[in-house]
Design a protein around this nucleic acid. Structure first.
Lengths: 350, 350
DNA sequence: CAATTTTTGGCAACCGCTTGCCGCAAGCTT
DNA sequence: AAGCTTGCGGCAAGCGGTTGCCAAAAATTG
């Protein structure tokens, strides 16, 4: 600093600023750096808009004061909240934990706050959250949305969002490659000699449930299998008992189950009833959630990179929020799936 | 309203307000109701501060416009954000999922937003989050804080917080009754004839880990048991293998493990090595997380109402934020624990 | 060296809401 | 009836930033 005038900023408050009780504001920084607040603001958000020298000075001042801009105030004037809301149908479900983990991770990396919302499997709550939070979030990630196509379309026109595991023509989507997964699972079952298969259905409003059933039916029929369907069941372990009993009653030798939670519940019930898995019945779950590897028997399941899906969803949303000139925003990401064969599947009983 | 002058507010925009593109602000509501914005503000936040008649009028106007106050703006002027941050060491750990679920639930009921932060088991990140978010959250819930006593004390002077599973003299705390739990577990083991017991330790910085060990050592010694200790291990299933091997090597016939994650990992390893649980070795976990009931064998574990603990933590924090005149704020809540005996514990080998 | 362009930083008007203070009108006292 | 509370609503000053606009300073040009 060769220029002494720089040091001679008007210091009305003497050293009072070194230890004020309130958190420092942009004004404190401005004063300390001897510039206007607008300059501080610019130095911090659009660094190339100010002279490198002043920028450094401001940065130093900010660092010295331990200044952190108020996201509130920033949001007020800029209209951006720097937060995105993640809506999940059921925060209790480990499947969503995985996705939350993914979004959380990626959001954090981007310096964006995650607002977590449990919509309790209800489209009303979902819509309500979407509405109430339109001001407090820059965008939304809808995991397994329960909204109708029309609702989804309407909402997506008002606010930036990306859906996860819910096809949509109106909004960017990241999906799990369910069709492929179901086909892999049926192939596995077929190779083990199963002829009578049963789909254990989840929530009727779940798009992925519908999708799974559709592909299941098509492909199993094509293979000449006897196809059954039971359900719907709530995607919880506690629903597993009913599902297991119903499954046994169909006479099927193998089940593909809507998700792991339900599958694990079935496992427990089957064991309690003395029905051996996989000797008497094979079970295939879906999602490969926490626990699928250590339940008894370990569950054969459709694995998908859920956490990664969460990250991708965030990336897509962020890309939508800050459109980069060159790149066009991706409208669809399909996450690959594979069958993780563990011990809940085996040869069809003779 | 007999006074016509009230109705005769300047209406520059005619009926343009019925369908503006931007979300309605408090001004729109004020205009529609024919009052000042301050009155709207009060009608909405301190209803008894305005005349019931005007309040109704304002409420109607607000409803008609579908008005939702901007939490940003509200926060800016009132200094409150209506959000609380929940810091957990590892969002990946099902244990914290339970507590998150509890806090989320209770916070939602209070109309407060939950800000979830993963501190990655690092006290620096924890401190950093505490600092960075001091403006964006009204209070903090520190789950299993990694902070030192001094840090905790200092922080708790600046911002409202409650700690969970981390004793603190400076901040309100909700704790799991670990001592009792460990004693119950040892009692259980003793009654099964075990004499050589081993504590499998978790993160050294974890207060509850230290606590558990302390009580374990005291009580086991008092019972004349041979006590071992191994660890520390990261509280993840993947650390279970090393822990299991080390445990076997101690010659102990029963282990009390820092948490279920680690215990389940040990179960897997022991099974892989052909060591039967509980015939050859008994295992007791802690927390009763998701999965503890369906792992193989189902895990005997220390159950505690974690989700409820989350709710209590929120209540205590909220009480601290809006002190009710009459009531004194509770400084400590201890959640009861009990031993859930499943199949991973059995008689000591002969 | 004057004229012109580009940088750089300041001014000030918000963003949407809260709140201290004030004044008016109505209700009570005596 | 005059004097005092009390209840209700408006005014206006912020809260802590951002940003369009403008002018001074610096760099470029002929």
């Amino acid at each position: 600093m060769a220029n002494p005038s720089v040091e001679t900023v008007p210091q009305g408050a003497g050293d009072a600023n070194s230890r004020r009780d309130r958190p420092p504001t942009i004004r404190d920084v401005a004063e300390l750096a001897g510039v206007a607040t607008s300059t501080v603001s610019r130095a911090l958000s659009r660094p190339d808009r100010v002279n490198p020298r002043t920028r450094v000075r401001i940065e130093e001042a900010a660092a010295e004061l331990n200044y952190i801009p108020s996201s509130q105030a920033r949001g007020l004037s800029s209209g951006r909240t720097n937060a995105v809301a993640v809506l999940v149908p059921d925060i209790t479900n480990p499947f969503y934990f995985d996705i939350i983990r993914g979004t959380q991770h990626q959001l954090k990396a981007a310096g964006v706050t995650q607002l977590l919302v449990d919509t309790e499997e209800s489209s009303e709550m979902e819509l309500d959250a979407l509405h109430k939070m339109r001001k407090s979030a820059d965008g939304f990630i809808l995991a397994a949305s329960r909204l109708t196509d029309a609702q989804l379309t309407e909402v997506s026109q008002t606010q930036p969002l990306v859906t996860f595991n819910r096809a949509s023509t109106s909004a960017p989507t990241v999906m799990i490659d369910t069709p492929s997964a179901i086909i892999q699972a049926l192939e596995h079952l077929a190779s083990l000699g199963h002829h009578k298969v049963c789909y254990v259905a989840g929530p009727p409003t779940s798009w992925s449930n519908q999708m799974r059933w559709k592909v299941f039916e098509e492909d199993a029929t094509k293979r000449g299998m006897e196809v059954h369907r039971i359900g719907p069941y709530a995607p919880k372990t506690t629903s597993g008992a009913a599902a297991a009993d119903a499954a046994v009653r169909t006479g099927a030798t193998a089940c593909i189950v809507f998700n792991d939670l339900l599958a694990i519940g079935m496992l427990q019930r089957l064991q309690a009833r003395g029905i051996r898995v996989p000797a008497d019945m094979s079970i295939i779950g879906s999602d490969d959630i926490f626990g699928a590897d250590f339940c008894n028997p370990p569950l054969t399941t459709i694995s998908s990179p859920i956490e990664q899906a969460g990250r991708v969803a965030v990336s897509m949303l962020l890309a939508q929020l800050n459109p980069l000139p060159g790149s066009t925003t991706r409208k669809l990401a399909v996450m690959p799936t594979h069958l993780t064969v563990r011990e809940s599947t085996g040869p069809a009983p003779a």
